[in-house]
Every structure is written in structure tokens, then in C-alpha cells.
Amino acid sequence: MLEIENLHVTVDGKEILKGLSLKLNVGEVHAIMGPNGSGKSTLSYALAGRDGYEVTQGTMRFDGEDLRAMAPEARAAMGVFLAFQYPVEIPGVVTMNFLRTALNAQARARGEKEIDAAQFLKAARAAAKTLNISEEMLRRALNVGFSGGEKKRLEALQMAILKPRLAILDETDSGLDIDALKLVADGVNALRSPERAMLVITHYQRLLDYIVPDHVHILADGRIVKSGGAGLARELEAKGYDAVIRSAA
């Protein structure tokens, strides 16, 4: 489903990813772990198509299509979803309206029918309930004044509503206490499916106790230096990044 080969990405003239290769099949959950500055967020932004993340070499293919040639909204319409590490506060844009606009824009781009208002409201309310998101929150401006946990829950809600085929979770655990983490992880686990792949990016192993990956990759200095099963995360937690990365070199 997702094939990344020898990816080099430059930000502000500085090379951050230096030949990253990764392959995700549909239905798989992969975790990428790495120390600060290893390029985790750069990978997620490059996949989602953020301006300023310049691919200088290599390829990113989704269902065989070259992602580089596509605008962020076109990638989203194909089913690529990035759960942001720091969801953006947008004053004046009502959360509920935003969700419906996004859903309908994706439907239009795929040549599908737009969802009607009543149907949407019902689906959104049901999804919100399982994530403990109140209706009052959905009537507020997008992410404005939300706590860290609320923002992450809202990212999970967007994922539930937009039903992406590839979900990239960028440090979804950051800023969450254990209860909030469980809630978000439950939301994510509910979306695990044979039709969907997930790329879970995290610094700590903690999140992976809840979202158990099929594969774990260690990212260091812009490259994947070691790959393994779920056990690799625990090894990292026990030995620390330095030791594991050094032994891989």
C-alpha cells in the first residue's frame, strides 16, 4: 500500500531524512520509534505534503501513485490521514462544520455523493460519544481552548469519521495522561482493520502497550537502522536508544 524508497527530505536547506525506506501492506500496523531529531515528524509531514518539506531524492508511493505529485488535499482524498502531534487551533471555524466540510470535500474529490446533514450529524454524534467528546465541544471553534487530551481525542474522531486507508499517528501520546492515552488508543484500535494500514510514530514505548504494532522500526539520523517485531519496542525501553542504535550500526 505504502512504499517509501531511499527518501531524502530537506527542510530549510537542511537534510533531515537521508535515504529512508519503508513498506507497509494493507492491514498492518507499523511503529516508527526514534530519538528527538531523528526525523519522525519530518516523515509524517512529507507524507502528508506540507509545504517546505522538500523531497530531493527517492520515492513515496501510495497504491502505486506518486505522492510527491499530489497536493495535500488530493492525498487526503486518496485516504492518507495525518493525526497531528500539535493539532492547530483555528478560531472562527466551528468544529462540526469543519468535519462535514472535510468529509464532503473528500467525497467530491473521489466522485462520490456528499453525505446529507442529518446522516452526518448522527454519525458524528455516535463517534464522538465513544471518544467521550461532548456536543458542546463540537460546537466550539476547532481546537480552540481544547486541552491536550481533547485535541488528541478530536484527531481520533476525525479519523473515525474520515475513515482513511492509511493513518499516520504523529506522537499521538505526547501530552496525554494515562487515562487520556487509553481513550485515544481504544479509539485507534477500534479502527484497526484489514482494509487499513497505520503508521504509529512515537518516542516512547508506552503508546505501543496499547496500540500493539506488527512491526517496529528504529529511526536514527534520517534512516531506519533496525526493524523488528513488537519486542523491539520493549528492548528499546529497557536499553535506551543509544545502546540499540549503536549495536545496529
Binding site: A48, G49, R50, D51, A71, P72, E73, R75, A76, A77, F81, L82, F84, P87, V88, I90, G92, V93, F98, T101, A102, L103, A105, Q106, A109, Q158, L162
Partner: peptide, 17 residues
């Protein structure tokens, strides 16, 4: 970028903001 990453086209995202 946040709006576009959710599938909202550029001109619509502009108008929303």
C-alpha cells in the same frame, strides 16, 4: 495545511479561514 490535510481544497480552505 491542517485544513488541506483533511481534504479541504486550497480555495475552500482560504475561504473558511
Amino acid at each position: 495545511f491542517y485544513l488541506r490535510a483533511r481534504g479541504v481544497p486550497l480555495n475552500e480552505a482560504n475561504a473558511m479561514l
